[in-house]
């Protein structure tokens, strides 16, 4: 790995470790290998959002050309958010693409992703299905996001109605994740989700 990238990542790693966010438990950072090319980030769902109480893992890959190119970051924890793919975890965030600046650090990037959870950008979506629900029925979106936070990120709020519907599909032999995606996509309409899954 290029010297400059390793040097930066080491320094940024220390910066994150010393930061008040780590002290307050809202972000975390861990090394995945010894070469400083892969890290794992963790952000807490921000308060007063459907993600509150959840813990979201992020895969961070540092390119050879860092900091001249941005780190590659995706959600490893499944999340229902207009700017994150509900399938791959890919994030649509300008600073991870064309608005990257070399002075940004892992800490500022993690904080930006956390901020994205508080302030979605439905007009620049990564996941069109989620964004549509966000625009058309924000209450249902909030419930769905909260349910996903409970199911995947350890969030505290259990929504029994959604759990039951997932269970119904599971009893038909559908994979749990597939069932949840189908139900979320069809606004928790059990019939349409079933039709979609078995057509």
């Amino acid at each position: 790995m290029a010297n400059i990238a390793a040097k930066r990542i080491k320094r940024e790693f220390k910066e994150v470790m010393k930061s008040e966010e780590v002290a307050g438990g809202t972000i975390k950072l861990e090394l995945v290998n010894d070469s400083w090319t892969e890290l794992q980030g963790e952000i807490a769902g921000p308060p007063d959002t459907p993600y509150e109480g959840g813990t979201f893992l992020l895969e961070i890959k540092v390119p050879e050309t860092y900091p001249f190119n941005p780190p590659k970051i995706r959600f490893m924890t499944k999340i229902w958010h207009p700017n994150v793919s509900s399938v791959t975890g890919a994030i649509c965030l300008d600073i991870l693409k064309d608005q990257w600046a070399a002075a940004l650090t892992l800490r500022t990037v993690l904080l930006s992703i956390q901020a994205l959870l508080s302030a979605a950008e439905p007009n620049d979506p990564q996941d069109a299905v989620v964004a549509k629900q966000y625009r058309e029925d924000i209450q249902l979106f909030n419930l769905t996001a909260r349910h996903w936070t409970n199911a995947y990120a350890g969030g505290p709020t259990v929504i029994w109605e959604f759990n039951q519907k997932v269970q119904v599909l599971q009893d038909m032999g559908v994979d749990e994740d597939q069932a949840r995606v189908a139900l979320s996509t069809f606004d928790w309409g059990l019939e349409r989700a079933t039709e979609h899954l078995f057509s």
């Binding site: 400059i4 040097k7 930066r8 320094r11 940024e12 900091p67 001249f68 070399a102 002075a103």
Partner: peptide, 10 residues
């Protein structure tokens, strides 16, 4: 901190 390069952190 003012003497540090924001790009390479050296």
């Amino acid at each position: 901190e003012e003497l540090i390069c924001p790009i390479c952190s050296g």
